[in-house]
């Protein structure tokens, strides 16, 4: 099945944009790990107050990252498509 050949090398700008999209995909993974981490704390040592501070610190971190990424990713619909979403995932499954 003929697959659309994607360019091997990208211009610096497009390359950066794609990595930004990769970063955006990683944010929920990071969030999940950090939010689950307190479960590994030894019992009895840390209290609710510490937990509260930790969770809200992680929360603020995630908000800050999303805030940083948002203007780049949400700039325009065209830019989003340029980022090459959907390549590889399911496209070649049933070639048209």
């Amino acid at each position: 099945m003929a697959r659309a050949t994607a360019p091997v090398f990208l211009a610096r700008v497009s390359y950066r944009r794609r990595r930004l999209a990769d970063a955006a995909r990683m944010v929920p993974v990071l969030g999940s790990i950090l939010f689950v981490l307190p479960l590994l704390w030894p019992e009895g040592e840390a209290g609710t107050a510490a937990g509260l501070i930790y969770i809200f610190a992680v929360w603020a971190l995630l908000i800050a990252i999303a805030r940083l990424l948002a203007p780049w990713l949400g700039r325009s619909g065209a830019a989003a498509e340029e980022l090459g979403e959907g390549r590889g995932e399911g496209r070649a499954e049933e070639g048209r």
């Binding site: 955006a24 995909r25 929920p28 969030g31 989003a80 979403e85």
Partner: peptide
């Protein structure tokens, strides 16, 4: 039950910050 109430907000936070993955589509 202490901090467990936070889980109700953590799920949506993860989904929203990961909007590029699912919500956008």
């Amino acid at each position: 039950s202490g901090l467990e109430y936070l889980t109700i907000y953590l799920g949506p936070t993860i989904v929203m910050t990961g909007w590029w993955l699912i919500l956008r589509k």
